[in-house]
Design a protein around this nucleic acid. Sequence first.
DNA 1: GTCTATAACGAGATAGAC
DNA 2: GTCTATCTCGTTATAGAC
Lengths: 230, 230
Amino acid sequence: MTTAQGARARARQEVTAAIKEAARRQLAAEGAAKLSLRAVARELGMVSSALYRYFPSRDDLLTALIIDAYDSVGEAAERARDAVADAPPPARWIAVCEAVRDWALAHPHEYALIYGSPVPGYSAPETTVPAAARVGMVFIGIVRDAHEGPGLSGLSLPADLRPEGARMVADFAADVPPEAAVALVAAWAQLFGLIGFELFGQFNRVVEDRETFFRHAAGRLAEGVGLGRG
Amino acid sequence: MTTAQGARARARQEVTAAIKEAARRQLAAEGAAKLSLRAVARELGMVSSALYRYFPSRDDLLTALIIDAYDSVGEAAERARDAVADAPPPARWIAVCEAVRDWALAHPHEYALIYGSPVPGYSAPETTVPAAARVGMVFIGIVRDAHEGPGLSGLSLPADLRPEGARMVADFAADVPPEAAVALVAAWAQLFGLIGFELFGQFNRVVEDRETFFRHAAGRLAEGVGLGRG
DNA sequence: GTCTATAACGAGATAGAC
DNA sequence: GTCTATCTCGTTATAGAC
């Protein structure tokens, strides 16, 4: 009985994975807006109605792809953090930034899915939130460690941002000084500005040596969150 | 004869404008990927073949929309710059940043068109480059003025980025120090990271007081390009 | 119970003949 | 410029195979 259930479950997982894989190929070729269940089914030699055993609607398939993509960058960021766990905070910050950029360059369509223009007519459900938060949590962890270790430097917070900083600390950045939380969120958004511009072609004819440029910019972001020079 | 030609030219311009307006509505409703000449024609009560007298292809219509959008942000940035021409450089920098953000919040779909995910199957032609450069040129101008006036402070450039900085100065940032050019390009990309994250929903549950947060972040960007505190 | 296939719906896009 | 025949799409109901 358990073996039968195990086999069924395994088969189900395999089909689910195949569907998502085909959907990702579609994503790359046609874009998220044109993702179609029928085309996915066709590519797999299935009939469209059969897909509904695995995903109750097209939007649920999209949601699964989005969560997978967030988990994929999140994992890349966490792996990078763990690989340099002994390095000083600025070096760890830069390593994670580079891991996120490397992931984006390796998965441009999944990057566009989660950090690019929203898909028309689709609204991401709450279930995407934990996966979406993973990358940010890695950065928060680095700053928290620095705060509890060597300390943060060069930060300040104007009076009109103090409530916001306090709320951030309470909501998602425990044990981080409010001025660091505010700087952190800004740096996080700015990092994806650098990556998005490179990926989406805004750096054409503007930045040539992109590795070096990015490493330098990531280092300045680290300074901006109080990590000092690494 | 001249009046007849003038009337014809005027009529042609009006129809062209109506086509682009309808296309922008489509952009908002369905996204750039699904922009179709037929749907635009239908909305205008025309037949699709008639549109080809104005735009030889769907891609040409897209290109026109992209150039219009770039010109629109560029104009907003230039207007903001001119409105605070007497203010010190950091204040001018922040004013332009806020103008770009205001434009983005007012034109989210056009923002997505030019700064969001690339449209699958579409490749922007060279003709978009001058319009795309306008916003950046405004920032370069502010930094150049500061350099030639009160001066820039706190900048440095590692050896491995010096060739890149020199190239930037030669290519598009004349009369700006190379270290400022590099910082400028980074700040430019980071600005759109802040705006894109706000616009595309990444700030949900993360940033509440977005005006204040943005103003502060824009000020830090100004410091990052050597403008000092305003 | 779990899955796949057939068929159909209503809506929309598209191609081509006229 | 119009009309029609033929596609696509998401989704559901149903029937049967394992």
